[in-house]
Design a protein around this nucleic acid. Structure first.
Lengths: 130, 130
DNA sequence: CCATCTGTTATACTATAAATATAACAGATG
DNA sequence: CATCTGTTATATTTATAGTATAACAGATGG
């Protein structure tokens, strides 16, 4: 999978990496059971430190996106990502609230906001395109 | 307005403060032209440093939520918050993408997501309740 | 058997951001 | 003229991000 990092962004590199892998899973480019590069090879590929990759992997592991077999390597969770529970839904709402508050202040009405979300959802439905 | 900060959270205090003021504007508890406390008094009220408050105010000023008259104090933008432009919409989409990607991975379907957004929008329509 | 790969752990260092603590300046106000 | 305003400057502490090495332990393949 192609990884594209912005080293000038405020968002930490490990967080960008985490998000891109989640994005790959959402786009079905990364499928359950599929292997990911080792921390060392991925770090070398994108020119960052292995600990930075490891931090992303640990985060993905803790949230159930991937499994890490000590010697076998890293694998997209073969059972699929754990489905949303109430804790996740609460956290989701907490993330969306300030975004929606600002949108309201800026006169983005509900319909426009929902259509934007819809269009993003649709972008994950089609082909292999990001 | 009531300010509630979580000093244990990962989110910086100045960011929490910024978000709460935006939330207050969205809820219409803070109205155009209304005054905000001085950096010193607000800092004293919530028990933080004046520079932390100032950082939040500067951010709100730069994004057009408030005006700061050198000696008169801080005021909610009397002309209202600048409406969403294309730059804001692009930034909004950038914020929503990773959130939606994770939701898709966790099997939150489009309808459920949209209804959550709707319910949040509705929470800003009613009374003075947060 | 041994070189090599895996994730993991530990330590150390640099750089940056967040938050605090003081202090001072300049324009208004009463 | 004392007092309040935002603003600026400096310094310190703490935490996080990222890098740099190094080593360990389990597996694998030649």
């Amino acid at each position: 999978m192609l990884i594209n990092l912005d080293f000038e962004a405020n968002e930490p590199i490990y967080q960008q990496l985490t998000n891109q892998i989640i994005d790959g899973i959402a786009r079905k480019e990364l499928k359950p059971g599929e292997g990911l590069p080792s921390v060392r090879s991925l770090a070398a590929d994108i020119g960052i430190n292995l600990h930075t990759v490891n931090k992303a992997y640990q985060q993905l592991k803790q949230e159930g996106f991937i499994l890490i077999h000590r010697q076998k390597g890293v694998v997209i969770n073969p059972d699929g990502v754990p489905k949303a529970d109430e804790s996740y839904r609460a956290q989701l709402q907490k993330k969306l609230r300030p975004i929606i508050a600002e949108s309201i202040c800026r006169d983005v009405d509900e319909l426009e906001f929902l259509e934007l979300c819809q269009s993003i959802y649709n972008s994950y439905k089609g082909g292999t395109t990001s």
